[in-house]
Design a protein around this nucleic acid. Sequence first.
DNA 1: CATTGTCAAGAGCACCGCTCTCGAATTTGT
DNA 2: ACAAATTCGAGAGCGGTGCTCTTGACAATG
Lengths: 232, 232
Amino acid sequence: MNAVRTARERVRAELIREIKDEARRQLATASAGGLSLRAVARELGMASSALYRYFPSRDDLLTALIIDAYDALGEAVEQADAAAPKADARARWMACCHAVRDWAKAQPHEYALIYGSPVPGYQAPEDTISAAARVPLMMIEILRDEHAAGRLAEPTGAPLTPTLLRQAKEVGEQIARGLPAEVLVAAIIAWTQLFGTVSFELFGQYVGSVDPTDEFFAATANRMADLVGLPA
Amino acid sequence: MNAVRTARERVRAELIREIKDEARRQLATASAGGLSLRAVARELGMASSALYRYFPSRDDLLTALIIDAYDALGEAVEQADAAAPKADARARWMACCHAVRDWAKAQPHEYALIYGSPVPGYQAPEDTISAAARVPLMMIEILRDEHAAGRLAEPTGAPLTPTLLRQAKEVGEQIARGLPAEVLVAAIIAWTQLFGTVSFELFGQYVGSVDPTDEFFAATANRMADLVGLPA
DNA sequence: CATTGTCAAGAGCACCGCTCTCGAATTTGT
DNA sequence: ACAAATTCGAGAGCGGTGCTCTTGACAATG
C-alpha cells in the first residue's frame, strides 16, 4: 500500500527535481526576475499550466530555489570546515571563506539569487532564514572552539556602546553561548566583509582595481581572521 | 532662434524628468526587473509607445536611473565631507560613511538598483562607472590629505603578496598618487565593508541580530577608520 | 469494476516590451 | 508668410509573460 502510493509520489518528486534543475539552468541566462515558467515548461515538453500542479506560483518555485541555494552553500562551507585540520582555527576560517567564494563563483546566479537585491514583490518565508544561518553559525563555531581552548585574542579598538553590547549579548545567548560580546560583534563585521567582498567581486565592482581578486580576497579573509582574534 | 529651439527642447527635458520621476516612484513598489514602461506611461496619461521617443528601450531608462542614483549618492557623500571639519579626518570619514547609509535608507530601491544584483540582461555602460567612482574617490581623498599631513598610521597585519602589491600600485598611480599600496588595499577593504554593511542592513540580513543597526554601523565604520590608519 | 483523486492540456485573461504607421503639431528654411 | 522638414502622440499589432479555469484521460483505491 505504501509502496504503491510511493510509485506515484516518486514520479512526482522526480518531476519536481527536473523542474528545479531546468529553472536553475534558466537562471543562468535570465536571472531571478526573468525566470519564466512557460520557458521551463517548454523545455520540459509540457504545458505551462501543468507546472502549477507542482509549484502553486512562480514565487514558490523561486523560494524552493533559494532554499536549495542556501543549503548548497551551507553544505559546501561545512564540508570545507570538516576537511580542514580541526586544531588549526585559522585554516578552518580560511577554508570556510574560500568555500563561500568558490561556491559563489561556481554558481554566480544562485548566489545573486540569495545575496543580491530582494526580488520584486518577493517576501522571504521562514524556511529560508534557518537555511541562511548555516554559514554564520559555522564561523561562530570556529570561534567558540578557539575561545574554549583559550586561544582567542582579546578584541582591540574602541569599546562598544552599551546598546550594541546588549544586542550582541542577546544574540550570543541564543547561538554563541560563552563567546564575549566583543568577539561576536567582530564576527558579524567579518561575516559582512566576507559576503561584501564576494558580492563586489561577482557584481563587477573590482573591475579595474583588484581584478583578478584571488589575492585580495585571501588578504581580506586574513585581515578578518585577525579582527576576530584568531591566532596566526 | 535659440530661444525658439529651446522651447521644444525644454518641454522635452521636462518630460524626460517626469518620466524618470514616475519610474523612480514605481521602482519603490516593483524593483528593477518589474519596472513597466506601460505603467509609467499610464500614470503619465500618455501612450506607452510615446515613451520610446524619449528612451529607446527599457534598459536605457534603467541606465538613466542608475546614473542618476550614483550621482545622487556621490553628491550626498561629497556634501557630507564638505560639511565636516577639514582638519578632522576621522570626522570626515565617519560623515561619508553615514552619508552613504543615510542615503541608502532614504532611497532603498535606488540603492538596490545600483548595489544589488545586476539586472537580468543588463550591461552597465561606460557612463555608469565614472559616476560609481565618486564615493571611493572621496574616501581616498581623505586618506591622501591625511597621508600628506603625515598623520596616517602605518598599516599592520601580515605583509601583502607581490601580485596584490602590484595591483594596488597600478591603481594607486591612477587615482591615489602618493598613497602607499598597503593603505590602498586597506581602503578597498573598508570600502567593501561599508557597502557590505549597508547592503546587509537593507536586505534584511541583520534582522534578529544587530537590528536596529545604528550602533553596529557606527562601530563598524570606526573599525574601518582604524584599519586604514586614521588617527582617533 | 466502479469510484475517487491526480494529472496534462487547452483556451483565455490581463499584462508586458517593442515596432510600425499615420495624422497632427511644430520648427525650420526660403 | 508659406512650404518643407522634423518631431511628436496615439493606435494597432506582434510575440511573449504569469495565472486561472475547464475538460478529459489516467491511475490508485475500495
